[in-house]
Amino acid sequence: MSLTQGEHIFGGVHETGINDLLRAFFTARPRYLRYGTPAFVPATTVMATSVPAPSFFGLNIQFQIWCDPIPSVDITPGGAGSAPLMPGTNEFTVKTNLNFTVVINNGPPITGSLAVFALCRPFVAVSTPGTGQIGITVIRVEIVDITPNWLESVVEGLVLGILQTVLATVRFPFNTITAGAFGLILLVGPTAETDQIKVRGNAL
């Protein structure tokens, strides 16, 4: 079966390529990996994003959250490393460690790290022919080894929001998926399959 099938143009990025793109994105714009309340990030810079401190029963809660290593993907069919949250049809797993430091009422800092798996799908963020962009939708999150289960669910709910924020900023332009060879009019995709994000369409 040909790559283009019923269309004229095919573009496919292998998961190794996606990981290169993610590395380039977050290396250029690290503030999308690191978020902190004013005690940790007084103002948003290239390196970190300042977020307001939450209001919770009058407590002064200051925190800093950052992803390290840079998120990486495993596109369906998943490998052994994605075992906690295997990607299914048109899905890919994003893996990272969510690191945090929390200070409550100026108490001693509480630090930790969670291994996070997020189940994602690609979607068309901007559909304009030639200049469209592919984005990432986070469906759900899996954190391993938090007990009891209800606590795990609470934490996963919080982490889901964090990862949705982190990954919402990531965009893959059509032009990158075709390596600049064609202006793409997207007709099919994006789909996640055979370790690739794939698109098909016609040339602009």
Partner: peptide, 17 residues
């Protein structure tokens, strides 16, 4: 498998030419 793979059929290749 390369990081990025682009394919064009003969119709698209004709436009390219």
């Amino acid at each position: 498998m390369p990081d990025i793979l682009v394919a064009a059929d003969e119709a698209a290749a004709t436009e390219l030419l």
